[in-house]
């Protein structure tokens, strides 16, 4: 099959010994692809400086959130700010489990997120591919219409979607929770962009081999789009994980709510126990963060080093 030949070809390219004329870089061990790259462009001091300082700035509010999750409510709200609690309040994390049916809400979150992510990857890659690489009447117009739904404030959809779900008899059900989120204009646009950037020769070759458009899409183009698919997966997971208004409106049982909605119930109209909110939100984001760490190493790096670009 064509995709395998591509795979083999690039892999061969990758294993070709590196050009010897690298400038400046202290060449350590030779022969591996890694050092081949390491040789190009000299030292990384500036890069480390920029990324290190920038990264710390980016992470700072988050680190502070961790500290707040271990403080008392008085310390969190104190002026002047308290940077380190008098005593670490690990109890705040235990209280999360008292206040929320955390595990059953986690389960709901995982379920709806998996369903939506799989559905979006499937539907968006299909449509994105068609919009990018196929010719059909009305393509531009349809794409514009799909994109146009991004331009309306999301609250506009609330009432209509609620009544649609009500009409389908899906209020307070898993189906009602996931349904509108199965379809994504953003994802379609993302995948269209990814497919647009790909070379046409691969499709041509497969077509000459007698593959039909679906086979070309599935076996040739889809594997090439993996980096963008992982981006789509990450963004969909995050969006679904943090989504607040919709699950709050369509569910009436706290056990059926996803975590995002459960967390919001910790915020009171007059007084709020902020450390518990901080602790709960850190617990809730942990699975997504772990997923990202795995994805960015396995998928983005993994694909790059296997030569499947």
């Amino acid at each position: 099959m064509t995709d395998r030949t591509t795979f083999v070809r690039t892999r061969t390219v990758d294993s070709v010994p590196a050009p010897v004329l690298g400038r400046g870089a202290p060449s350590t061990t030779a022969r591996t692809a890694r050092t081949r790259r390491g040789r190009r462009g000299g030292s990384h001091v500036v890069a480390h400086l920029v990324l290190g300082v920038g990264g710390l700035l980016m992470a700072f509010p988050f680190v502070w959130q961790i500290i707040m999750s271990l403080s008392t409510n008085t310390e969190v709200q104190s002026v002047t700010p308290v940077f380190w609690p008098a005593e670490l309040q690990w109890d705040n994390y235990a209280r999360v489990f008292d206040r929320l049916p955390f595990l059953s809400q986690l389960q709901t979150s995982v379920t709806i997120t998996v369903i939506r992510t799989v559905a979006q990857i499937l539907l968006c890659t299909l449509a994105g591919y068609a919009f990018a690489r196929m010719r059909f009447r009305g393509r531009g117009l349809l794409l514009a219409l799909v994109l146009s739904i991004l331009m309306v404030p999301s609250q506009v959809y609330l009432l209509s979607q609620y009544q649609l779900v009500q009409g389908f008899g899906l209020l307070d059900s898993l189906g009602g929770l996931v349904l509108p989120g199965l379809f994504s204009a953003f994802g379609t646009f993302l995948m269209r962009t990814a497919f647009l950037a790909m070379p046409a020769e691969l499709e041509e070759a497969a077509r000459l081999d007698g593959a039909n458009p679906f086979q070309i899409f599935w076996k040739v183009m889809l594997p090439l789009a993996m980096p963008s698919i992982s981006v789509l997966a990450i963004t969909t997971v995050l969006w679904s994980w943090n989504e607040l208004l919709w699950p709050l409106v369509v569910t009436t049982f706290s056990e059926k709510m996803p975590l995002s909605a459960g967390l919001a119930t910790l915020i009171g109209d007059r007084t709020t126990d902020y450390p518990v909110v901080m602790a709960a939100s850190l617990l809730a984001m942990a699975p997504v963060l772990i997923l990202f760490i795995v994805l960015q190493r396995r998928v983005i790096d993994g694909l790059a080093s296997s030569g499947l670009k």
């Binding site: 609620y162 009500q166 208004l245 706290s254 119930t265 009171g268």
Partner: peptide, 23 residues
């Protein structure tokens, strides 16, 4: 009896949606 907690900030948006849909 099922108790349904919606945080205050979203309570009224939800109530309005439900009232408009007889739910």
């Amino acid at each position: 009896v099922t108790v349904n907690v919606t945080p205050f900030a979203e309570y009224w948006t939800k109530l309005q949606t439900q009232a408009s849909s007889d739910t």
